[in-house]
Design a protein around this nucleic acid. Sequence first.
RNA 1: GGGAGCUUAGCUCAGUUGGUUCAGAGCAUCUCGUUUACACCGAGAGGGUCGGCGGUUCGAGCCCGUCAGUUCCCACCA
Length: 905
Amino acid sequence: MIAKTYSPQEIEAKWYQYWLDNQFFKSTPDERESYTIVIPPPNVTGVLHMGHMLNNTIQDVLVRKARMEGKNACWVAGTDHASIATEAKVVAMLKERGISKKDLTRDEFLEYAWEWTHKYGGIILQQLRKLGASCDWDRTRFTMEPALYESVIDTFIDLYNKGLIYRGIRMVNWDPQGKTAVSDEEVITKEIQQKLVYIRYGIVASHEWQGASLETNHLPLTTDHLTIATVRPETIMADAAICVNPNDERYKHLIGKKSVIPLINREIPIIADEYVTMDFGTGCLKVTPAHDPNDYALGIKHNLPVLDILNDDGTLNEKAQILVGQDRFAARKAIIKLLEESGNLEKTEEYKSNVGTSERTGAVIEPKLSLQWFLKMEQLGKPALENVLNDHIQLVPPKFKNMYRVWMENLRDWCISRQLWWGQRIPAFYLQDGTVIVARNKHEALHKAQHERLLFALTEADIEQDEDVLDTWFSSWLWPMSVFKPSGDPADPKAGPNDLAYYYPTNDLVTAPEILSLWVSRMIIAGYEYQGEAPFRNVYLTGIVRDKQGRKMSKSLGNSPDPLDLIDQYGADGVRTGMLFSSPAGNDLPFDEKLVEQGRNFSNKIWNAFRLVKGWIVTPSPVLGEGAGGGVLAVQWFSAKLNMTLAQVNDDFSKFRISDALQAIYKLIWDDFCAQYLELIKPAYDTEANTSLPIDRDTYDATIDFFEKLMTLVHPFMPFISEEIWQDIRHREPGSSICVARFPVAGPVDGQIMADFDRLFEVISTIRNLRNSKGLSPKVALPLAIKTTDTSRYKPIESLLQKMANVSPIQYVAEKSRGASFVVKGDEFFVDIVGDVDPEQERAAVQKDLDYQVGFRDSVLKKLANEKFVANAKPDIIEREHQKLADANAKIKALEAQLGIIERG
RNA sequence: GGGAGCUUAGCUCAGUUGGUUCAGAGCAUCUCGUUUACACCGAGAGGGUCGGCGGUUCGAGCCCGUCAGUUCCCACCA
């Protein structure tokens, strides 16, 4: 006995294990065409969230379909070492154990990091299995594993040797929480409500340099002062100058004089530069070269000293003289109070401004001057831009091309060094005199120093390696290439020597638009630099999964359902389809549990269709059973419908219209197969024998065939239920699977049968409607009379009509007959409704239809009478108008006749 | 401050070169129904001036202009 409702839990676990055991997801190069997707590697610290679900479902759909099309499908999984995020997790773990990172050596710390990675890392890959992801797990890679580490180092060395990597002191984005530099792309600007603080700076009367007095904390107020406006009052101690616009009449007389920083009484010059906007704030700008990129530039121009008063963690250092040790934000509050007390605070204003925050830690970015490694981007970026603009690489949807172009045309050098330990250590080695040698390791560096610089006396002890690691993206930009590099471990091959040549370029990349610049563009750059070819053909950009209020789903908001709970509740198939029902590429997905519920219902619908068919008794020979007269035609019709939908689905897939493809399949299965086809061929029930009558073998076989095709069609979307049914519906050899069954191919569509059935369905639904509106039970058979010029249109489908609309008997008439009447495609139908038919109501309905038809006919006539239309429109358009006119005229004639009957009574 | 996109039914979205009865789909809503696959169901129904205005055209949801709302990207006004 098959369960009445579909319960996915055991079925899903069972088949996933079966797929793994039989290695259906395994891919090795062969003579077939390859289809490859590399997963956007989730952070090794990550856990599955709704965004992953959407993203990976799409990838799985694409991979499964390709696999069923006979391609050598390969979906490579893996994780990203995510330096900042992972290092933060490890530091937290250490803290719990009472260990401070400061007390550890680099190697000790890394040991803990690996311990963490092995213990907690990669959970997400396990979770993906629950979703049904058909990755070749044997190929699972990690960006910190030896082979990939090596690739990163080699790439660095290569780019360095090409002169594209340099080291220099620059103003970088400093993350005080992660205590590392981050690249421009990792900074997210947010509008934040701040206070614009107006501070009075005294002016030194004498032109002579007096020297700053550090002894006195409070300068006697001079009558002469100027006021600056700043959102960063805690940095005034680092001021190097006050700057005004040279054309500003208010301050011309002050240029060249000295001003005094409040609280610390340090004198700074008053300088002039056109950079200063006269009508913002007070027109006076405090110049703080160490803590603002613009001020830094101004400082260089005017040769100002740089005084950095912040520690790496964002606290004030001793150079600040006051508030030392306090966090910058605490200091900001505190200094306002101090300024107020000293009488230097003029006022504060509420002010909104954009503040950069760290993409990884969320901390407010501190512009900081430091020595970092950079990659020159200008030349490297050229092919990456060109090949997207010319569609060699296609962005889906194409609206993202614009964003991409703007970004690629304004590439800035990439700060690739990070002040962390978890990551690929920069392969730069310093001799005592500061000489830089870039080499794979210390040994090689020494060799180089000895042979290229003839420093034969050197030993490894004289060489220090750079302490920094490389930006995580500097390893993930190689991902589509490095995953196909042999692991170097013969016991765990992961990839063979020919894999890169076979799988690269990959086919599709599925990822979020937010990392288009951070990751996608850089993979393209690396692809052209090292393979001379794009890393993928298409980039499918998913949207963001949002809650009903349109907020991004996030852990901190707590507005995201747990994906595994959802899978538990609705089944992986239900969740997958639910997420894809309304997710056009590039659009955000406003998530609603209703969608997943709809997905689950769909599973259940399929399940019950299966139950129905499984329960049928089949005649031993292809004898037409009772009511099977229309069976042959029903089979022909559904065959046509199936082929039509197949063509549609293939077209949708070719355009990456995944949601549309799913919807087409959904309607085909639910409406056409279940609601129509199965009802058409369903054998009658023998109440006496208390059993359903047998179905003829031909119809049954055709139905099983359809069912099988439908399962293969839906399999990319619903891998589990489709496998369960596919295995059961026919005898299967051990080790077979729908995973590698052939995706159905569209055949020809019989237009005639489609038209015939359209007419049939219209008649059926009109009769049902009639019944509904009159409140008649579907159990009561109604006599039907048909007035048609061609009875052969209906004779063969009488049994179907009878079954679907419960009409009986059916007779053909030459004249009007009694009962409610309607017209379908020129033929008239009379349903002999027993009981009260309100003639007035019926007359009104017919009249309304007639009015519409007449109006429509007149509009067509008008169009055809328009000389300009006839002269300009294409011939086939005009032909259509004539056809419309003929149709309308026929309808009007029939409706008028109908009115006549009603009125005669 | 610049640039790009979006605005179609209560919600989420289709609508391909302007032309079939073109104003669609799914969900939601309403009515009826415990019919022997499924109430996680069935049979029906209602619902939109295609953001506003103007233009091009024989003809505009679709092309152009403009205004409004909205989203995103870029940008150093402290």
